[in-house]
Design a protein around this nucleic acid. Structure first.
Length: 266
DNA sequence: ATGGTCGGTGGCCGA
């Protein structure tokens, strides 16, 4: 089974590239972030024509997540238990969707950006991640053998080597110690970054800003991860970041991250 | 050269 995660930065602007990439890459399950559309605007038909099922959750032009699968798609869940909302009154944002695909509980996650260290969105991001950790730990407490993939754009660079120049990020979000602590807490709860061992840094990224020639200058950030429960991590045999897909006109600012899972699915 | 670029939307905001 081949599983991938990709922040597409608007599925409507990118659908042709998504279709081409899915076919070329022979991907069974794709977790998508930043679809930037409502459910009624999502381009489901061309994906169905390729043999995929789609579950999407989008409320507006912001956020939006989906799971696309050709190995089954069941028990769709919008939002994780305890997921905080934003605003006054606080309302849930379209940032998470879970589904069972080929025996794996796949979550597509779009972690809040945080904006700046002094912005209320930063506090929201930390709270959101702490609550995700509580939910994810609960799933493993309930069933230590569960096959769970927490896939998505985490908006965190967990290590100094995950940005091209730490000096430039001294007062920025994505690299702060509180953000990194929340990420490590999810690792400590039993979820492994299964991609890094196959794509060691430094200089290995999943995101490059559109501006300032960041991509050709190889100035990026590693922000997209597939964190796997122990039982699933044990089945991962390979992983890669498809840097090629960041190239050319009409590319997303994120590259797809792909993992290969062996063995029978439940 | 205090910049640059993509999305969305609707006459700027978020990343």
């Amino acid at each position: 089974m081949r599983l991938a995660t990709w922040n597409v930065n608007s599925v409507r602007a990118r659908i042709d590239r998504v279709l081409d990439w899915l076919q070329r890459s022979d991907v069974d399950v794709l977790a998508v972030q930043e679809t930037k559309c409502r459910d009624d605007q999502f381009p489901t038909e061309p994906l169905v024509a390729l043999g995929y099922e789609v579950a999407h959750h989008g409320l507006s032009a912001w956020n939006g997540v989906a799971v696309i699968s050709r190995v089954g798609l069941a028990d769709v869940e919008i939002g994780f238990p305890g997921q905080p909302g934003w605003g006054d009154p606080a309302a849930a944002e379209a940032r998470t969707l879970g589904a069972n695909c080929g025996g794996i509980r796949v979550w597509s996650l779009y972690v809040p950006n945080g904006r700046t260290l002094s912005d209320p969105h930063y506090r929201y991001k930390l709270d959101w991640l702490a609550r995700l950790r509580t939910a994810a730990k609960g799933w493993l407490d309930t069933d230590p053998t569960a096959q769970i993939a927490l896939c998505g754009d985490w908006n965190i660079a967990p290590l100094d080597e995950d940005v091209w120049d730490m000096e430039k990020f001294r007062f920025s979000t994505h690299v702060s110690e509180p953000e990194r602590r929340t990420f490590r807490a999810i690792i400590d709860a039993g979820y492994a970054d299964v991609v890094r061992p196959h794509t060691p840094g430094p200089g290995v990224y999943t995101y490059w800003d559109y501006t300032r020639l960041r991509f050709p200058r190889r100035e990026g950030m590693r922000l997209d991860f597939a964190l796997c429960s122990p039982a699933l991590a044990a089945r991962v045999v390979d992983a890669r970041i498809d840097r090629q897909e960041r190239k050319g006109k009409g590319a997303s600012d994120h590259a797809p991250v792909v993992i290969d899972v062996e063995g029978p699915s439940a």
